[in-house]
Amino acid sequence: MFEEPVRRRGMASLTPLIDVVFLLLIFFMLTTSFLQTQSLAVVTPAPSVDELPTDARVVEIWLLGNGTIAIDGTPVERAALAEGLKQAIGERKDLTVTILAEKGSKTQALITAIEAARQSGAKSVGTARVERIAP
């Protein structure tokens, strides 16, 4: 007569499950990014340099074309920018910080300068691009 069918349902095959899980794993590995972006809100600049205030209550950060940064004409290291700006401002909190970007300066320097100006406690921060900063 016929043989009794062997009951093997206790251990169903795991291979399809593993296949699917591997596929999901590879999908998530490829599509996720761990890059944490930050955002920095900046007021858009006035269309012309002439609209910026130029009286004594202005500290200027110069982003020079050769990659160096200067505060009111004194060159500073990029790491020491925030500290130098604090010294230049001192106790006068009603100051405006103006960031002048010369032709050839990079966005990284601009971001560094904006952040330093923000942290220095100045009342307002302005940005402008100039062809060449007069020495």
Binding site: L35, Q36, T37, Q38, S39, V42, V43, T44, P45, A46
Partner: peptide, 18 residues
């Protein structure tokens, strides 16, 4: 950013990396 000011955008958000 100047062009954006003319387009009526007062504030932009610059994206940076930590």
């Amino acid at each position: 950013m100047e062009g954006l000011r003319e387009a009526g955008v007062e504030q932009v958000t610059l994206l940076t990396e930590r």
